[in-house]
């Protein structure tokens, strides 16, 4: 496989494509707005107040949130695959997303009773911070269970994910069932993900942590390249392995926590986006991180577009669309790797 396009061309191409795709997505919806009108509105030249309102209050936050969440899940997937030294890791598959979702749901449901102190302390940030901690805990558990003697066992990693997902799903389900809170009636929001009710406040809440992950993870890129040969080898090359591991675990949990707290669990973005980038640019994390951010953003925007148009006027949860793309993709990856030893 002698792939490898120029990183700069691919990244800028993806960036342009993302803007075009976003503009097109802004024009699609129950109310017909032409792409030209979308552009006019974006530059503040719209002559229709209604169009301006639909764009700025409904569609724009939704699409920007999709991009943000996609970028976060994309880099988190790339980071976890680097950490587990295996391209099959995905935040949703190994249970990090459901851990984050469970923590978020717990705070929402018990915020008025048991966790009143937590909410009082963190106010508006109490849900995303809890999601971050939930994701962090699960990443750490999986790393501890699946990694022994400097080797991550993929089978163990995926099975731990199965167990964590089961525990989190049942607990989340229970809490949602018990909840009286309006926000929680809709269990599908957490389990299948959605960016349909996106608001500007969701955007501002998720923006800083995801931007931090996207900008800071490349700092660990060289270290993760070496880490693909194992902890010992990267230490021998002079990388500070402890700092590397905790940096990567922390930043990926940050991205997943922020994504989940505004959009629920959207699976497979973290699996598919880095994989496509590796096919285009190779496995070097210096390009993999920015590439996965752009590709993840694109994937979420496209699947959200499908989610709201396929059965329109009804809307499918975006997680269903993403799973329909990601599930077969995952199966294909497994089949491809089966020919080699182990996974």
């Amino acid at each position: 496989m002698n792939r490898r396009y120029r990183p700069f061309s691919v990244l800028s191409g993806l960036g342009i494509l993302l803007v075009v795709m976003g503009t097109y997505a802004l024009s699609i919806g129950p109310i017909e707005i032409s792409s030209f009108d979308v552009l006019k509105t974006l530059f503040g030249l719209s002559d229709s107040a209604q169009t301006a309102l639909v764009i700025s209050e409904i569609r724009l936050p939704r699409i920007l949130l999709g991009m943000l969440v996609g970028a976060g899940l994309g880099v988190a997937g790339a980071a976890m695959q680097g950490l587990f030294r295996n391209p099959l890791a995905d935040p949703a598959l190994v249970g990090v997303s459901s851990g984050a979702a469970l923590a978020a749901v717990t705070v929402i449901v018990l915020g008025h009773s048991l966790l009143v102190g937590w909410v009082g302390l963190l106010q508006g940030a109490s849900v995303p911070v809890a999601a971050f901690l939930g994701g962090l805990l699960v990443t750490w558990i999986i790393y501890r269970v699946a990694t022994r003697n400097d080797h991550t066992d993929v089978g163990l990693m995926l099975l731990t994910g199965v167990a964590v997902n089961a525990i989190a799903a049942s607990a989340t389900g229970l809490l949602t069932y018990l909840a009286t809170d309006e926000a929680l009636r809709n269990l599908t929001f957490w389990t299948m993900g959605s960016i349909s009710g996106a608001t500007w406040s969701d955007l501002t809440m998720a923006f800083v942590p995801i931007l931090a992950a996207v900008l800071l993870l490349p700092y660990f890129a060289r270290g993760l390249n070496a880490f693909s040969m194992g902890e010992a080898v990267s230490a021998h090359m002079g990388f500070q392995v402890k700092r590397l591991k905790w940096g990567v675990i922390g930043l990926s949990a940050l991205a997943v926590g922020a994504s989940v707290s505004v959009s629920g669990i959207i699976g497979f973005v973290g699996l598919v986006a880095p994989h496509l980038i590796r096919l285009l640019l190779g496995p070097d994390h210096r390009w993999l991180f920015p590439g996965s951010a752009l590709m993840g953003a694109m994937l979420v925007v496209v699947s959200d577009l499908l989610a709201r148009t396929l059965l329109s006027p009804a809307e499918i949860p975006i997680g269903i669309v993403m799973s329909a793309i990601g599930g077969p993709f995952f199966l294909w990856l497994l089949l491809q790797r089966r020919s080699r030893v182990g996974l």
Partner: peptide, 11 residues
């Protein structure tokens, strides 16, 4: 080391 396992397609 004795063994190095590598799961990514580095050149």
């Amino acid at each position: 080391p004795q063994r190095v396992q590598m799961d990514f397609a580095f050149l």
